[in-house]
Amino acid sequence: MKRDQLSLLEATILPVAGAFSLLIVWQWVLPALGVPAYIVPTPFSVLRTFASEWRGLIQNALPTWYEALLGFFLGNLTAVILAIVFVYSPRVRAAYFPVVLLFNTIPVLALAPIIILVFGLGILPKVVIAALLCFFPTLINMVRGLTSATSNELELMHVLSASGWETFWRLRAPRSVPLLFASLRISATTSVIGAIVGEWIGSDRGLGAVIIQSTFNYQAERLFAAVLLASLSGIIFFAIVGRIERIFHRLASP
């Protein structure tokens, strides 16, 4: 078994080499096979477009980031609050948890037009779609996290005459922290997806709008550049949440 383990050098180099091999195929093999540049532009031409149009791209990324960020906060905050209500009120939970889960089965692409219809064409519907995508993972993880205290731990708190608030703060909340951060990391990328989906349907600005417009205009380089930027946004959001988690753990355990 030991022999199958990668050395540190291999573990660093192999992922980079893997990515490069695919980029090389994309840059030289696809054109050689006759795939036209207006369908799949080469990585170099995408980078060139990125370099020349970055101002416009960033200008369009700003509203997307704003919507994603607002959606991230709105969705996760609502989910955490609802999870606390569900955990402390079994009746509310029995009544509404199944409905909420059922609601989750509606594909967001099918739901998006309805949300646009209800909330109009401004920034709000994009925020709502982003929030919806963040909401479900966090709700389910938080309900699980808050109920994961063992009966022994709850009995210990009872023997110590801890109040309900103390039991929440000293036991249930710390128990749910790892699961909360797991879903926040998921939300970091899905909030960007939500904002872009919202922009597809009813917007003339934002990365989603750029993606739709450049698709219709056969501006493949711009399309790929916008997709690249969207993906980068997700990665950056993800990294920020990871960073916050590390800071949190450092503060929590001095």
């Binding site: 063992t150 022994n152 009995e155 110590l160 005459s161």
Partner: peptide, 28 residues
């Protein structure tokens, strides 16, 4: 009344000292 359970029931995110301090942070 103090209770010692069959399982130690220590909170894993707290150090040994912080676990022993728990009774001073909750209740009376």
């Amino acid at each position: 009344v103090g209770f010692v359970f069959q399982e130690a029931t220590l909170l894993p995110w707290r150090t040994v000292r912080d676990n022993v301090c728990l009774p001073l942070q909750v209740g009376k």
